[in-house]
């Protein structure tokens, strides 16, 4: 069994009810597992929500987490996306103060990571970049020295490449 501790992505189909997220979060937290990122939204079926969460764990621990989540009445399905061919995306919004000195560098970074400027207000701009976790990390590291005002990240969303 895989003993390496690494980031694992779980996709959960759950009943679209108010306290389901608390049950899922409590099940992980109560047993000492940390949620690294979390994304929740509706699916094509309005009665069902999809939760994409990531956690850092080895394979035996992940199996325990999956089994505990499956015990929840409102959890219908748990899929370990780490094992499956999956498209993964994360989006980041970054607000930056524009100066004569950093403008060109910012433009280059936006271009490199396929981002775009969402708004431009006076000397502030908000940049949107999406990509896999690695891209987002790299973009963030490049933007940091140029003076980030604030930022917001979505956490990972993921989808199996085929059914």
């Amino acid at each position: 069994m895989e003993r390496e501790k690494k980031e694992r992505i779980l996709s959960l189909l759950v009943s679209n009810k108010p306290d389901v997220l608390a049950r899922v979060a409590g099940t992980l937290g109560g047993r000492g597992y940390n949620i690294e990122t979390l994304c929740v939204d509706a699916t094509l079926d309005p009665k069902v929500s999809k939760i994409i969460l990531t956690t850092i764990a080895d394979q035996p621990t992940l199996t325990k987490i999956e089994k505990q989540l499956m015990k929840l009445i409102d959890v219908q399905q748990v899929t370990d996306l780490t094992k499956i061919a999956t498209v993964m995306r994360e989006m980041m919004l970054v607000r930056m103060k524009l100066t004569e000195r950093n403008k060109a560098d910012i433009a280059l970074i936006i271009d490199t990571f396929g981002g775009r400027v969402v708004t431009l207000n006076g000397d502030h701009c908000v940049i949107e970049i999406s990509g896999n976790r690695d891209d987002i990390e790299k973009a963030l590291q490049s933007l940091k020295p140029l003076g980030i005002d604030d930022m917001s990240r979505t956490g990972i969303i993921a989808l199996e490449r085929t059914k």
């Binding site: 306290d19 608390a22 409590g26 099940t27 109560g30």
Partner: peptide
């Protein structure tokens, strides 16, 4: 009580 008993009930 829903919040309090979430971790100690089956549901």
């Amino acid at each position: 009580i829903i919040g309090i008993t979430r971790p100690c009930t089956k549901h």
